[in-house]
Computed example of a mutant assay.
Amino acid sequence: MRRTNLTAATDSESWVGLGLELRHATGPGLRPEVADGNRIVLSQGPDAVLLARIDDDRGGVEYSRTDYYRSPVAPLRATEVRALAGGGRPYWYARWAHRFADALEASPLGPLHEGRWVLAREGVTRTGDGPVGPWRSLLLDDHPDGCIDWSTGSRGIMPLRQLRPPDGGRVKAYRKQAREGILPPVLLWWFSGLHCYVILDGHARLVAAVAEDREPAVLVLSRARSEEQTRTGRDKALSDHHLTMSILDGPHPVADREGAARSASHLLATQLHRLEVDYAPTRAWPTQRT
């Protein structure tokens, strides 16, 4: 698997994500399957871990989880967590991204398949009601059954297994790490078929962070645009930039030409960056189940 460190659009020293490219055809262990245009099954090996049905009016989806989900990431040892200390800093996210990429590449239980992916530093939009307010409002923890209302436009966060209680043994250990500022990131996967994130690894870590009223650190795995899509978008962004600069350099005076040129360059950098990190649709397969 080829890896590329991705930096911020306007700061080449700030790490924001890890580009992954799988050249060889691989069948993912965790894969969405579809049937009849409105039924979705999330399968992991021979097991169905989630069953969903899209509403006829396409306004939302009802789902049910089965408790068969298994994380593609082995349990994290306390010694490893402390060795990778540096919570919240870009290099800390980068270390954990490579650690998760190693696990996803080696595991037969994860969603990776041939193509381009991004494992990026992300955060839930703040709503002003505290560091974990958005997590409490977006967490789809109505286990095992629930529904997502797409008309609200919100991107929920779905556990793939029942969450542990805040006073459980493993959660208590993670709560201590949260207080120390070394709690590892939660690993999410963008699942466009449900228009939500699902938790690949870190169910207990998420509970621990929320219990300690701390915003969880997050890394999000998503499919990336294809090379052709990226190239087309890059060519258009560059063409638009060249057109803007030709106008600024033309015979007619432009107020604050230097400021306008800086803005145009910033826009170009942002557009090129988004081409690298924006989510692409999740791939699905025909269902093998009746």
Rank of each mutant, 00 (worst) to 15 (best):
I182Y: 06
T79D: 15
L267W: 14
Y174P: 06
P108Q: 08
G233P: 02
Q271V: 08
T127G: 06
G29E: 01
D149L: 02
A269C: 10
I157R: 05
S12C: 12
E105V: 12
G45W: 01
P111S: 05
V254M: 02
V220K: 00
D278V: 07
A217R: 07
F100N: 01
A35S: 09
L275R: 07
A269L: 14
V34L: 14
L42M: 06
P72L: 03
G19S: 07
G88R: 00
T232C: 12
D278E: 14
A94V: 10
Q271G: 09
G59R: 02
T270L: 15
H113N: 11
A264F: 03
A25W: 14
P111N: 05
I157F: 00
S64P: 12
H98V: 12
L219V: 05
Q162S: 11
H98Y: 12
Y63N: 06
A52D: 04
L267R: 14
E21C: 11
W150V: 00
E62A: 14
L187A: 01
Q288W: 10
G37M: 07
D141A: 11
A237G: 00
R164S: 15
R136T: 14
P165I: 12
L6K: 05
V207I: 03
L267K: 15
R164M: 13
R89T: 13
V277H: 01
S263C: 12
H242T: 12
A74N: 15
R89H: 12
E105T: 10
L20N: 04
L267Y: 09
G259Q: 04
S14P: 10
L42I: 05
H241R: 09
R89C: 14
G88F: 00
D129W: 10
R231T: 13
G86Q: 00
D55G: 11
A224T: 03
A224S: 12
A237W: 04
R31G: 04
W285F: 13
H98L: 09
L160N: 01
G59S: 14
R214G: 08
G193H: 11
H266P: 09
S107D: 02
S239K: 13
W285V: 13
D56Q: 09
L109A: 09
T10N: 15
L139K: 00
V73D: 02
A204L: 04
R179M: 12
K236C: 11
Y63T: 06
W96K: 00
E122D: 15
A255E: 09
P108Y: 04
R116W: 08
T282C: 05
W285C: 13
H24E: 15
G259A: 07
H273Y: 14
D149E: 07
G259V: 01
Y63F: 08
E212W: 02
Y174A: 08
P185N: 00
R289I: 10
S265Y: 03
H266D: 15
S239F: 14
R155Y: 07
G45E: 06
Y93F: 13
A8P: 09
P286K: 14
L163H: 06
C147N: 13
E122P: 08
P216S: 07
R58D: 13
